[in-house]
Design a protein around this nucleic acid. Structure first.
Lengths: 359, 359
DNA sequence: CTGAAAGCGCTTACAG
DNA sequence: CTGAAAGCGCTTACAG
């Protein structure tokens, strides 16, 4: 059924049909109602392609999950079995948050998982063909930078989630990330509250922005509390399990070892737990451990891990809102936003002051 | 850039541009190359809306995840925290399998999560507006039947995954499900191989097709092995944790209790484990337990659960292939397919014959 | 308040 | 082999 048909049925012109659908003023209530009733009755809906061609907005965004091979996946998530992105715990929360938010704002969502440069071409094509009005990229690595930046320069509307690299200040895009600094402050403050003053850290790969920010939060918090930063309380890890293992061995090797360790992601905690167990120590009685990410396995560790949660839902939701607002305004401004983290208290940290009660 | 512009640049007409893009024969290699080169150079891509309006296929399907409130989610998956579909373990594998397969077949994928009847209207609209060529529905419950069947009658192309209800034989749609019967046969045969002859079952909600099929597999397999079906070895559960708990209490209450129990989904196993522990029995030494679904928590149970895995990836992949083939052929036939399951051997079952070695 | 008409950017018979 | 032209189904100034 076309608008022409419906118009004939009602003895009107398609102009009028179009006007009531698009909510033009100056249409008498009676025709308005008559038209809507007919629309319901005949299940009429304007052909989307025709509308778009006539200049109406698409109202379609894409969520692009990048998993280009020969690159590691998101920096702070260890790839499971087969390095496939859908095994990553953030897949569901991100995708559903984008879908939900877009739906609320009356937008459609296209989903695309990109494994190769060829797939990436198709993504570009989504813009060139005017299928989408904008896109949210997740899991950007250097491999994709070039293409995405090109798109940004071409004035397409783009939001990026969890960009782990330091990004080019000149690009007018939307960047939404977890507030790693704030999360790190939370973690360290928590340990201080429990009475720990001798705190070690196993950092992530310091080429990554997130690792730098987490280290910075650690250092600044300790300094604020006038706690001296001991050089040998800092171990430079790289976000992998084995570096967590090595980190513990290193930090506990000297005299006066720390009573608590801030391990900068949960994956490294797995290695750390292993090392601690090998050393015959107990968590949290002999050593408190706090992680970062609240990975899906954190609650299954023994003991369950106290860690800092990044809400991928919140991040994705903000990205969607910002992107759609940009699309509606029709102009992109540079926008960098940090989303708060949450401390998840479980059983891997213990108070260390005179009384022996747990916080 | 429009095809007209590109044509002028090359001293050709847009007809010719269109012909090389659409791979028409009878175009000299030289012009073909010239045009492609220009397309690359200027990043030209035909406007999708214009193409569609001119009659070219959309090449877009939708994946619709149904989670309409006041209905339970997928029958065999217990809703976690907040009943939201994205907390369900099948979300990622299904979505990514559909995306990957569609991508391979050169189709785009729209994603929509439906929580209300209003959202459902929008889904209908996707068809009426001709935004999509077809759709895959996941998690259908009675609430949505009506609308979906209406769509099918209107000749839209539709595939359904994991339809738990007995479906109307007259509908020309694609139905892809796990082979519950075959999976059940696998589970029971496995117990028989381990030497069990005294086997109980805790069924699911027998209003559901999947529960019926699993029970049928159990009964037929035992009969084939000439094992008598004892009435009090069958407990009618309903796929919930508490019915697993009650089921164990019931099955172990009589004299000569079974040495193994087939629990028809993993959620019920959680309750079953609880009851068994309360009774002071050990798994698998005193009682072997086998589940169904290989839910995400199955390997974390103590002991890790031997269970039957449904590959949602495989199901979703088949649904995508069938749907797209139907779209290309432009005619829907009724198609019902069962996808095989896999037995995942872990530590909840023990051999029970003279020798005491584990299988 | 409402209709006739142009125009959106393609594809595809129809000619030549 | 290739161009001119119709047509896809809308929206939106332009008239009236």
């Amino acid at each position: 059924m076309r608008s022409e048909d419906l118009a004939k049925l009602l003895g009107l012109s398609r102009s009028t049909i179009s006007r009531v659908i698009n909510n033009y003023p100056d249409i008498p209530q009676s025709t308005r109602e008559k038209v809507w009733k007919a629309i319901e009755e005949y299940n009429y809906a304007p052909n989307a392609s025709a509308r778009r061609l006539a200049g109406v907005k698409n109202k379609m965004i894409a969520i692009i999950l990048l998993d280009v091979k020969d690159n590691e996946v998101l920096h702070h998530v260890k790839a499971t079995d087969d390095t496939l992105i859908h095994n990553n715990p953030f897949f569901s929360p991100i995708v559903s948050a984008v879908s939900d938010q877009a739906n609320k704002m009356d937008y459609y969502v296209l989903i695309s998982i990109v494994y190769s440069k060829e797939d990436l071409k198709k993504v570009q094509s989504l813009f060139y063909q005017k299928i989408i009005d904008g896109a949210i990229f997740v899991g950007m690595q250097e491999a994709e930078n070039e293409m995405i930046f090109q798109l940004i320069e071409q004035k397409y509307f783009i939001a990026m989630i969890d960009t782990s690299e330091v990004y080019n200040k000149s690009h007018n895009a939307i960047y939404i990330n977890a507030d790693n600094y704030e999360g790190s402050v939370k973690a360290v403050s928590y340990l201080l509250e429990l009475g720990h003053t001798s705190i070690g850290i196993i950092t992530g790969d310091l080429n990554k922005l997130s690792a730098k920010e987490r280290l910075a939060g650690f250092e600044v918090t300790l300094m604020k509390h006038r706690i001296e930063l001991t050089r040998n309380f800092i171990y430079h890890g790289d976000f992998t399990e084995s570096s967590g293992y090595e980190g513990v061995k290193y930090l506990l090797s000297g005299p006066n070892p720390p009573t608590a360790i801030f391990v900068c992601n949960d994956t490294m905690v797995v290695g750390a737990y292993k090392a601690i167990s090998e050393l015959g120590l107990r968590i949290p009685e002999d050593l408190s451990i706090i992680g970062f990410d609240n990975s899906y396995f954190a609650s299954y560790l023994n003991p369950p891990l106290t860690t800092v949660e990044i809400s991928f839902s919140d991040i994705a939701k903000r990205a969607t809102i910002c992107l759609i607002e940009t699309i509606e305004k029709e102009q992109q401004q540079r926008l960098v936003e940090k989303v708060n983290t949450t401390l998840i208290e479980r059983e891997s940290c213990l108070v260390i002051n005179s009384t022996d009660e747990k916080k």
